[in-house]
């Protein structure tokens, strides 16, 4: 029996699914001398290597990685390859956090952000229902999107607020029905007003963070989700954690 059927670690722990949506569009290939995508790749490799020493996360968290550029793909951790989401069982796309060896991502194409978010919502909902059905003590899935750009349609044209409204509404519904928590993280160049349309109460601009710090924030706050009944409480907690972190980082920089 694999750990997938057995459940994580010891089986009696709560399970926290985390879906991370990573922007791999062309803008992530900039600046040419030190592309952000390289920084992201290094941070992913380092973070998933170091997570093995974090016993609490190891025993609780399962991850699905989704990348979006002109296509939306998900990472099959067992096959170690990015695959189209269609036709793959959602259960297969979640892996225990310490069994993920992240892919080396490349940057190209446009930013199919809304399509990725819709995909993630479906994936998270299916996984949540499947685990409830198996009587696993699953918590609401946490969805995080990391982007440095602005959403575009299939032709690469920038989308406006009206084009995002449908996705934004489905996110709200998902949160209100207790199916998920959605957080948006913008890094250098991200279109903040549009992210606010998608996530009015849960958009963070973290351009002073490196990707490693962002991954820390993602997983630490996903793990600290309390008995909070409302998604807004979770969003507030995440924002407070990010603010505290930022203050300490600034302090440490001052003393450097």
């Amino acid at each position: 029996m694999s750990t997938y059927e057995m459940g994580l670690a010891d089986g009696c722990e709560e399970r926290q699914p985390v879906v991370i949506l990573l922007d791999t569009s062309a803008s992530m290939g900039r600046p040419a001398e030190s592309p952000r995508i390289d920084e992201l790749n290094d941070a992913l490799a380092r973070w998933f290597d170091e997570v093995r020493s974090l016993s609490r996360l190891r025993s609780r968290v399962e991850v699905a990685l989704i990348t979006f550029d002109s296509r939306v793909r998900a990472y099959d951790a067992r096959a170690e390859s990015l695959v189209p989401v269609e036709g793959v069982a959602s259960d297969r796309l979640f892996a225990p956090v310490d069994e993920v060896r992240p892919p080396r991502l490349t940057a190209s194409g446009v930013t199919r952000l809304t399509e990725a978010v819709e995909t993630a919502l479906t994936l998270a909902r299916e996984r949540y229902r499947a685990l409830q059905g198996q009587r696993v003590q699953v918590r609401r899935p946490f969805l995080w999107v990391l982007t440095d750009g602005a959403p575009s349609d299939a032709e690469g044209q920038p989308q406006d607020a009206a084009a995002l409204a449908g996705t934004a509404r489905r996110l709200r519904q998902g949160e209100e029905q207790g199916e998920c928590i959605f957080q948006a993280v913008g890094v250098r160049g991200a279109d903040l007003p549009l992210l606010h349309v998608l996530a009015p109460k849960s958009t963070l601009m973290l351009d002073s963070y490196d990707f490693g710090q962002i991954l820390d924030l993602v997983f630490q706050s996903s793990d600290q989700l309390g008995a909070v009944q409302h998604a807004d409480d979770a969003h507030r907690q995440v924002a407070e954690r990010a603010a505290r972190q930022k203050r300490m980082d600034e302090l440490e920089r001052k003393f450097r």
Binding site: E14, V136, R139, G226, A227
Partner: peptide, 8 residues
């Protein structure tokens, strides 16, 4: 019913 949390 669904599992929500330890506190629930």
């Amino acid at each position: 019913g669904d599992y929500l949390s330890l506190d629930d």
